[in-house]
C-alpha cells in the first residue's frame, strides 16, 4: 500500500477560476482523474488527482497559483450497492476522520476508488493495513 497525492488550489468564488486552472493542466497535457470543490462564503479549495502530480504541482506553482500537494489514500470500492458504505464503515471503525474525498473511476469502469485525505496519512494506513481492502497503487495512474 502506498500513498497517492492530491493537488489543492485556493480559489475565490468568481467566474473563470476553475477555467484558469484547467487550462494550464490541459496545455501541459496532464490528465485529471478525480476532482472536487469545497467552497464557503467567498472562497473555496479545488482538489485534483492527476496522472503527473509532481509536474502539475510545479507547473501551477510557477504560474502563480496558490497550491499545495497533499497525501491521500485511494481505496477500492466494489461496483455494487453498498460499495461506499463498506469502505466508510471500516474507516470510521478505526476512528479515521475524512477531511476531503473524491472518487476516481478507472478507465475500464470496472473499478472505482474512494480518494480520501485524512489527518495523518501514515497512521491511517497503518490502521487499515489489516483490513480486507484494496488500495490504489500510484503507479497505476501514471
Amino acid at each position: 500500500m502506498s500513498k497517492v497525492y492530491i493537488i489543492s488550489v485556493f480559489a475565490e468564488n468568481k467566474p473563470g477560476r476553475l477555467e484558469r486552472v484547467t487550462k494550464v493542466l490541459t496545455e501541459a497535457n496532464i490528465n485529471i482523474l478525480a476532482f472536487s470543490i469545497t467552497s464557503t462564503n467567498g472562497f473555496g479549495v479545488i482538489k485534483f488527482m492527476v496522472n503527473k502530480c509532481k509536474e502539475a504541482y510545479d507547473l501551477l506553482k510557477e504560474k502563480g497559483f496558490t497550491v499545495s500537494l497533499n497525501e491521500a489514500i485511494g481505496i477500492e470500492m466494489k461496483d455494487q450497492p453498498g460499495g461506499l458504505y463498506e469502505v466508510v464503515k471500516i474507516l470510521s471503525s478505526k476512528g479515521i476522520n475524512i477531511e476531503s474525498a473524491s472518487v476516481y473511476v478507472a478507465e475500464t469502469r470496472k473499478r472505482a476508488y474512494l480518494i480520501v485525505e485524512v489527518d495523518d496519512t501514515s497512521k491511517a494506513m497503518e490502521a487499515l493495513s489489516g483490513e480486507p481492502l484494496k488500495f490504489l497503487n500510484p503507479e497505476e495512474i501514471q
Binding site: I6, I7, S8, F10, T38, S39, T40, F43, G44, V45, K47, T66, V67, S68, L69, N70, E99, S100, E117
Partner: peptide
C-alpha cells in the same frame, strides 16, 4: 492570502 501557508485545507482558511 500567503501562498506559503496554503496546505489545501479549507478549515484553516
Amino acid at each position: 492570502i500567503d501562498k506559503e501557508i496554503f496546505d489545501g485545507k479549507i478549515d484553516r482558511l
